[in-house]
Design a protein around this nucleic acid. Structure first.
Lengths: 172, 172
DNA sequence: GAAGATTGAAGCCTCAATCTTT
DNA sequence: AAAGATTGAGGCTTCAATCTTC
């Protein structure tokens, strides 16, 4: 039975805060997913194309994609299977380490990105960045960064950090 | 091929902002999911138990759960199937409208909530609310509420709404 | 006809096991 | 032994169709 202590916990403002975060994020994802679907992409597929497009030489290892996304290595295999079937990416063997598979964005993959991006950014502007003042937005991003660094300390590397060692990149 | 316009779009700060929001939210969910799993609950199952626990009479219609969560009506049927098999909820026919199935939290369901909640709130404090100052937190929640109301205008009722007045939120 | 709910089929993801390479 | 990647099995969710009740 729910006693007083539990009643307090049920109504705890911190739980509501998490609910708010998840509803905002989930709702935004749903809006963005609708536009991506118009271009034949699932959100996770778009994320992978985007990360490849943002990477030097437009390529990443399977493992990098696993670390940067929320997918397991198995999950990355399946998604890349689909993307490769659709000719949006290709697997490329690494010559210096034959365990490694590089995933490379194809011209078709780049075209798809170019196709999707304008509308994508437009929706973000409408449903997120355009709703808040510059100071508000900046404050929220600063807070989110603090949270992100704490809950996902390993994923701090963004588009700027070279995940692949230089020598391996050159040797591909 | 990626021309200059697309290059700019790929590096657009607004896309990065969405990425930050999703990484923070996803990372937090992962942390919370680990504790919920210790108590035999998936995140969506916990969410449903929580929404039932927060509702008058500890019950909701299947349709209400569908509107308040990210699940389709079909998805709600499956989750409630599992919860009912585990005796955490029971379906109860509505006497005035026989199309309606109420989902009612059982004593076992309440016990499970009581079991999970303290550790759950503790994790939220560690990975979200405790990381930010009162003003920072309040600002982020205000921004998130603006976004939530825009991307999910229909879900303005339920656990997502501040059950607690805002001044009390700030004064947590 | 519309609303509430369920079902079968299919797609997506994870877990554990496996294989290859280092 | 460890790292990178894949595979089979199983669970979860959605879509479309269906059923019942209003």
């Amino acid at each position: 039975m729910l006693d007083h202590v539990s009643e307090d916990l049920l109504a705890d403002a911190r739980i509501t805060a998490v609910g708010l975060l998840m509803e905002a994020c989930g709702g935004l994802v749903t809006r963005l997913a609708a536009q991506l679907a118009d271009h034949g992409l699932a959100p996770i597929e778009f994320e992978i194309l985007l990360r490849l497009g943002r990477s030097p030489d437009r390529l990443l290892r399977m493992t990098d994609l696993s670390l940067q996304t929320s997918l397991t290595s198995s999950g990355v295999t399946r998604v890349v299977d689909r993307l490769e079937r659709d000719r949006l990416v290709v697997r490329q063997a690494c010559s210096s380490d034959r365990r490694i598979s590089y995933v490379v964005l194809t011209e078709q993959g780049k075209s798809r990105l170019v196709e999707v991006l304008p509308g994508h950014v437009e929706l973000i502007e409408r449903y997120l960045t355009g709703l808040l003042g510059p100071a508000e937005l900046d404050g929220m991003l600063r807070s989110l960064r603090i949270v992100r660094d704490e809950v996902r300390p390993e994923a701090t590397s963004g588009a700027g950090d070279p995940v692949v060692p230089r020598d391996q990149l050159a040797a591909r």
